[in-house]
Amino acid sequence: MLGTAGVMRSVIARDLTLAWRRKADVFVAVLFFVIVASLFPLGIGPEPQLLRAIGPGVVWVAALLASMLALSRLFAADYADGTLEQMLLAATPLSIIVIAKVIAHWIAANIPLVLIGPLLGLQFGLPGDALAVLALALALGTPSLSLIGAIGAALTLGLRGGGVLLALLVLPLYAPVLILGSLAVEATAAGLAAQPYLLLLAAMSLAALSLAPWAIAAALRISHE
C-alpha cells in the first residue's frame, strides 16, 4: 500500500519531470516577468530616484502576473488528456493530490521568479538588503499566489476565454499579497524593519495552504460533473 507521502512524492516527481521536459514553458514565464518589469522604466523614465520609489511595486506586480500566467499549466493539460479524471478517482483524498500538484507548480513556476526578482530589483536601483528582502518576500508570498490561483484555475477549467476570466477571479484576491510584499521591500529600502510584513506573508501562505486545497478539490469535482 502506497501511503499519502508516497503518492504526493510521485505526483510531485511527475509534475517536475513534465516541467523539466517542457523547459521552454518555464523560460517563457520568466521572460514575461523580466519584460513586464523592464517596460515600466520605459514608460516612466530613467530618473533613479523615481525608479527606486516604484521598484518594489513594479517587480511585485510583474511577479504576480507571471505567476498567474503559469497557472494555466496547472490543470489544463491534465484535464485535456484525461489524467486529471484519474486523480479524481485516486485512492488518496483529492486535496492531498492537489497540494502535491501546487507544490510542484510552485517549484517549477514560482521559484524562478524568486531567483530572478532581485536581478530585476537591480534595474530599479534597490539597495542590497532590499533585494534580499525582495527575494524572501517573493518566496513567502508566492505559495499563496499559487494556492489561490489554483482555485481560479480549477474553477475556470475548460471554459472559453479562461485566461482573462482567471485574471478577473484571481487578481483581486492577490491584492493583500501584493500590498504586503511591496511594503516589506519598501520598508527595508527606507531602513525600517520588514519583519512584520514577512511574517504576515508567511501567515497568509500557511492559511492558504490549510484552506485552499478544499476549495481546489471542490472546484475540480464541480468542473468534472
Binding site: G162, L173, A218, A219, I222, S223, E225
Partner: peptide, 18 residues
Amino acid sequence: AIDDPRRADKAGAVLALV
C-alpha cells in the same frame, strides 16, 4: 462563462465562499 447551470451554480458558490 459556464453553460451548464448546475456547474455554474456550484463554481460560483465556491468562488463566493473563497
